[in-house]
Design a protein around this nucleic acid. Structure first.
Lengths: 213, 213
DNA sequence: AATTTTACCTAATATCATTAGTAAAAACAA
DNA sequence: TTGTTTTTACTAATGATATTAGGTAAAATT
């Protein structure tokens, strides 16, 4: 007798998860097309050939869909920031690659970027678990930036935490302005997208980060 | 016979405008309490002791309320930025006061700040007129920053427009992060609110703006 | 074979923005 | 003053939306 790879339960669960994935994919397509807040629970059901109440088999509420996307968004974001090619280069290189990774995440995931950093949804408050994921990833980004700067061996006019936060604020500012003004242009183009390198240079010059090149 | 100060028409109009003002005030209170997207047309009517359809006498739609707040928000923002005390000081002073004015506008008008810069409302697109006001005020801010920098007489590594945009992106980034993290703390306090001066110093140092002090 | 679980359904509810149609009152013109 | 227009409000109704209640049939589990 051949051992099935999956129990029936597991097979059912897999199919369940497949539907969950499809729901999330549809949700993202909707958010990208109409804006994050325009997510329509009933319309997702219709696209799946279901009656709206049947969707509650997969998600407990519309907010639960937002929450799952929020959580996954931060996981993806964290992976992107941590697994940069240049995560081991010189401080300047690290700063540059962090900036690029941040902006590219925003460009490629406009919907998630808005959901994660701009809270565009009326009653949506991330669940405790999702919030923990979010804070963890952000703290890691801040820590990494601080570490890169520490490695530079220069004396900054601010603490490492403040330095990391200044970089984060600038990354966010440039990216948000870029997405608001030229959402269709890739990073590096457009009024604000073009500013990425200049923004990095600002930190490099002000903090004299080249000294250890 | 005593000449009335106002014609009946004018008196009626004044009462009309008073109701309009009250509607906007209620709307802002709601947005501040529950978030920009939580504005509830019916609830405004109820607070005024009206039936919801009667509100259409004063605003053509819910979006029209958003639009008026958006327009006024940019007007107030422009006034604040232009009428800074230090709008005539040294370049460094101007940069500092611009940063402060921007952040304080955000802190005192969180609801408008979100509405104006973050577009947190599903279908809301500013009317052509409001959009013109908005773009005009932003262009003026950029121009003013550029002029202040030009006055410094230094050679920047970027164009004046790019320099203005970098400052705008940084102001936005720090303010948005501050409002997201410590909305209750005034400018100057909190993890990001504290960074205002450091952010200004970044530009001053990188661009050597003190030379003309 | 008996049971539990899962995935779906229909019907109904509550909340919203908004439209249609109307009535009273105020403003105005004659 | 009288007749007309404009303004302000109403009730009733509609359509979209998220969600709940309650049920059914098939599949999975015991």
């Amino acid at each position: 007798m051949i051992e099935p790879i999956l129990t029936r339960r597991q097979r059912q669960r897999r199919q369940h998860e497949e539907v969950v994935e499809e729901i999330l994919a549809i949700a993202r397509r909707m958010m990208q097309a109409e804006g994050v807040a325009a997510l329509n629970f009933n319309a997702i059901a219709r696209q799946l050939g279901m009656q709206p109440p049947s969707l509650y088999t997969y998600f407990a509420s519309k907010e639960a869909i937002y929450d799952e996307l929020f959580r996954r968004g931060y996981l993806t974001f964290g992976q992107r920031m941590n697994q940069r090619p240049a995560a081991t280069g010189s401080p300047v290189e690290q700063l540059r690659s962090a900036f690029l990774a941040y902006m590219e995440f925003g460009y490629e995931n406009r919907d998630l970027f808005e959901l994660m950093f701009q809270r565009p949804v009326p009653g949506f408050t991330p669940s405790a678990e999702s919030m923990a994921v979010s804070l963890g990833q952000l703290a890691e980004a801040q820590r990494q930036l601080g570490a890169a700067l520490a490695q530079a061996g220069v004396t900054l006019p601010v603490s490492l935490e403040e330095a990391g936060d200044l970089v984060i604020a600038m990354m966010y500012g440039v990216t948000a302005m870029h997405l608001a003004n030229n959402p269709e242009l890739p990073v590096g183009e457009g009024r604000f997208g073009r500013l990425a390198d200049h923004a990095v240079d600002l930190f490099v010059t002000a903090w004299q980060l080249e000294r250890v090149e």
